[in-house]
Computed example of a mutant assay.
Amino acid sequence: MKRLAILGSTGSIGQSTLSIVSSYPDRYSVATLAAGRNLDAAFEQARRWRPRVVSLATEELAAELAHRLKAAGTTGVEVLWGTAGSVVCATHPDVDFAVSAIVGVAGLEATHAAILAGKPVGLANKECMVAAGEILTAAARERNVPLLPIDSEHNAVHQCMRVGTTAEVKQVWLTASGGPFRQWPLEQFAGITPEQALKHPTWVMGQRITIDSATMLNKGLEVIEACRLFDLPASQIRVTVHPQSTVHSLVEYIDGSILAQISVTDMRLPILYALAYPERPASSLTFDLAALSHLDFAPPDFERFPCLRLAYEAAEMGGAHCIALNAADEVAVDAFLGRRIPFLGIPRTIEEVLERTPAHHPETIAGVLEADSQARERAREVVSAAAIRV
């Protein structure tokens, strides 16, 4: 029985992970849950799974959850809050495996703490690897802690790389749907609305990641994450636009062989792979080969998607520039959703913040968080200066 810490339990990855636990009760159980701000969902999860610890974002939410659990007669669940509570969830002695699915750098400290505590980690939080990948991977190597990707593209690469060594890899291909605007005329981009950008053609995801998919910044973050996870330079990580989204990634080897991972577009499959690794349990997640009757692959248009170009530039610089890329995007996406900047204001904000960011490689998590805070402040200044309402 593998006992899980689910960091980000009320989000889509957290809920899918709980679905896996429900489907494999002889393999997995819930030890701790970090649930953020969704009080109602946290209450239902705590009653259903009876974890040792539940952590919420604030002391007020934690107090309310404790009150509700007591009124419902649910005992034995410790309720904590904040980053410290998430760290307790990640490092609890009953935890055998931590699923890192807290959105953004908010999950960084808990993920790092899990690694330091020797817990294998399933990574569904690309922002942690973008901002602090060098620190996290170094800590994992020192402690021989597995970092198993849950993002579908990196999970696919991990599967394809099981048959060869890193030295045998010529290049990795990350597939991208191209989002809703891959065929739109460029002159229409200035008028894109949040409602249009939130209509992803393939996946149902949170707001930020959906907007990031529309700008292809999400794929840029994945390029940086792949560099960290697989110890490859950005020049060996390629992006190909694949609208069908049936091939999740490919690995090209130096002998000319190309291996592709193909499966249904269901996040339960990569989650199960990470939880069970190196085993492959039977599942009901089957794939219809008829879906392979038509496959398109095309190079990305860097003029149409400047955020992808900016991500490659940040990957080459590393350190503070990767931190700034992620932080500036988060601020810019929030401003776009709030109609304070236009769609094209997202790459403009990111580019200006990167230009203002000095080269620096933080060596501690505290240093990463300080660089992140500085980048967010620069981004807010850029957004405020733009003062454009669409």
Rank of each mutant, 00 (worst) to 15 (best):
M1L: 02
R3N: 04
A5S: 10
A5N: 00
I6T: 11
G14M: 11
S23W: 08
R27W: 02
A35P: 11
A46I: 06
W49M: 06
R52T: 08
L56E: 02
A57S: 03
E59A: 12
C89T: 04
A90L: 07
P93I: 01
I102V: 15
G107F: 14
G107W: 15
A114Q: 09
I115R: 08
I115S: 09
P120V: 06
V121E: 06
E127D: 04
M129D: 02
A139T: 12
N144G: 08
V145C: 10
L148T: 12
D151W: 12
N155T: 10
T165N: 13
T166Q: 12
V169Q: 02
P185Q: 01
K199W: 01
P201A: 01
V204D: 15
Q207D: 15
I209R: 14
D212K: 07
S213R: 07
A214T: 01
A214N: 04
T215G: 03
M216Y: 08
L229F: 14
L232A: 05
S235V: 00
V239D: 09
I254R: 15
Q261Y: 05
A274P: 09
A282I: 13
D288N: 14
D288V: 06
L289F: 12
D301V: 03
D301K: 02
R309K: 11
L310M: 06
Y312V: 04
A315C: 02
I323Y: 03
R339F: 15
I350L: 09
P362D: 05
V368W: 01
E370L: 13
E370F: 07
E377C: 10
